[in-house]
């Protein structure tokens, strides 16, 4: 359980600065929190709420809507085995069972050494390559039991470290946008006041509390 580290808080403020409204930075900040701890902690959500000026409940509402934000600790490698129709027909369920047996856990759980989490997921848009799985959202196609075993061996041995960073890592090169290179930030109200574009003021937006 941790709030954002001081370094990440600085980064968070930079990210917030990229948006006309702080609240818009919610999702990037959740990614940042997940990157920091491997999952999104309650403390981090409370911290983000402070940073963007909403309640923690609103942060949780957003965070819990998205499957890719984890609210509980998970393994260094999250393996998503597809069991949706195409994969199922090609052995997705069997693959999942094999994964469960090999790692000694059921879908949704994490191995005691904290290395692997298995999840059964819906279609991951690789139907032509069924059965498919993802490790930290990196695809593996037409996976049979042997392929699964060697994948696990490789991950354990660190042979895939270059390709597959720990769960939560968004990018290994941090993007910094200098102040003078930032996109022109205009709030919808300002844009509407400037007289364009029309769709922005088609509906009257109520004024914002705390906007003074």
């Amino acid at each position: 359980m941790a709030r954002l580290t001081p370094e990440n808080e600085i980064l968070a403020r930079e990210i917030i600065g990229r948006y006309p409204r702080p609240k818009s930075a919610l999702i990037p900040l959740l990614h940042l929190a997940q990157e920091q701890d491997g999952y999104v902690t309650d403390d981090a959500m409370a911290h983000i709420a402070e940073l963007v000026g909403v309640t923690s409940a609103e942060v949780l509402g957003t965070c819990s809507f998205y499957e890719m934000f984890k609210l509980h600790p998970c393994g260094r490698y999250v393996i998503n085995v597809c069991t949706n129709i195409a994969c199922m027909l090609c052995g997705g369920d069997e693959l999942l069972h094999h994964a469960e047996e090999t790692l000694g856990i059921t879908a949704g759980a994490t191995t005691p050494d904290g290395l692997f989490t298995i999840e059964a997921v819906e279609c991951i848009a690789a139907c032509t390559e069924a059965p498919a799985l993802q490790v930290n959202y990196r695809y593996r196609y037409k996976v049979d039991n042997d392929a699964f075993d060697s994948l696990v061996d490789d991950l354990r041995a660190g042979r895939l470290n270059d390709e597959i960073p720990p769960h939560g890592t968004l990018a290994r090169v941090r993007q910094h946008i200098p102040d003078d290179k930032r996109a022109f930030i205009v709030s919808p109200e300002e844009a509407a006041a400037a007289g364009e574009p029309a769709w922005m003021h088609a509906h009257e937006t109520p004024s914002v509390e705390g906007g003074a």
């Binding site: 409940a57 949780l60 809507f65």
Partner: peptide
């Protein structure tokens, strides 16, 4: 806004932080 919809789809529920 201290109560909010949490989770999604069939799992959606109202709750607090």
């Amino acid at each position: 806004p201290l109560i909010h919809f949490i989770n999604r789809g069939n799992n959606t529920e109202v709750n607090t932080f």
